[in-house]
């Protein structure tokens, strides 16, 4: 069983979001980088759990990014996984990113490809679905539980107002969210082992971007909170009804 886990580098959740160059570039000054939480906490940890249950499982990690993505992929290797591939290109276009991963996936003949449900920077939720389109594979999105059963996976996915369980024949792609696994902290042994695990750098394939970012903006600040006294809830109800027209 061969697993491919897609790992993305994102700014820490507490990072101050700012832009430079006339609001056309994300300001990386002082930003701490982390593994995208959905990739780490859910996709990667679930893959590691599967390997713990069945040592014949191999886990490859893939990231699309330049050399500055290496600390992130090493950290992922410290959590678990056998080897990593970095595709040497930085792009904000989901299609370019997905095409790079698809090329690796085709070569590696993976049984299962895992992604996080989205990244916390561009929030596009595109990569898993695009891989499914590019590779013509079954895709189960927003999964919160998964067990392998021979050549099929039984996966629970979120639906409006509940969840459904489905069976999917491998190879397949699954995007992971909360419930799938519990967050882990890398231990010293893992960190040491990660230093010598193979990290292969491959050059990107040539694909044309389909989108381009023109500018960024910060949301307008709230004009200020209107406080209502705790013993005057009727006034809050009036404001919500008449001013905010909230119900």
């Amino acid at each position: 069983m061969k697993l491919l886990v897609c790992i993305s580098k994102t700014p820490d959740t507490t990072s101050k979001i700012a832009f430079t160059e006339g609001n056309t570039k994300f300001d990386e000054n002082g930003v701490q980088w982390i593994i995208n939480p959905y990739d780490e906490w859910y996709a990667l940890v679930r893959a590691i759990e599967m390997k713990e249950q069945d040592p014949s499982v191999t886990i490859h990690l893939v990231t699309v990014g330049e050399a500055d993505a290496e600390p992130i992929i090493r950290k992922a290797l410290a959590l678990g996984g056998d080897e990593a591939i970095r595709i040497n290109i930085q792009s904000n276009d989901s299609f370019v990113v997905a095409s790079q991963i698809a090329a690796i996936a085709k070569e590696g003949a993976y049984d299962l490809i895992l992604t996080g449900k989205e990244t916390i920077d561009y929030n596009s939720a595109c990569i898993g679905s695009m891989l499914a389109g590019l590779l013509d594979m079954p895709f189960v999105s927003l999964a919160n539980h998964m067990v392998l059963n021979g050549n099929t996976a039984s996966v629970k996915r979120e639906i409006e107002g509940g969840e459904e369980t489905c069976e999917v024949a491998l190879p397949a792609i699954v995007s992971c969210q909360k419930g799938m696994a519990e967050q882990r902290i890398p231990n010293m042994r893992g960190i040491m082992a990660a230093r010598t695990k193979p990290l292969k750098v491959v050059e990107p394939i040539v694909v044309q971007a389909t989108t381009s970012i023109k500018t960024y903006d910060l949301p307008p600040a709230k004009s200020g909170v209107k406080l209502v006294a705790a013993d005057n809830v009727d006034e809050l109800v009036r404001l919500l009804k008449e001013e905010a027209k909230a119900f």
Binding site: D93, F95, A125, S129, S141
Partner: peptide
């Protein structure tokens, strides 16, 4: 709609149509 099913298929349809996509 950028709802649960939209997230699952809109990007896949976009790549099949060689179309650029913006989600959300």
């Amino acid at each position: 709609a950028h709802n649960l099913n939209g997230k699952a298929i809109a990007p896949a349809v976009a790549v099949k149509l060689h179309a650029g996509i913006v989600t959300g």
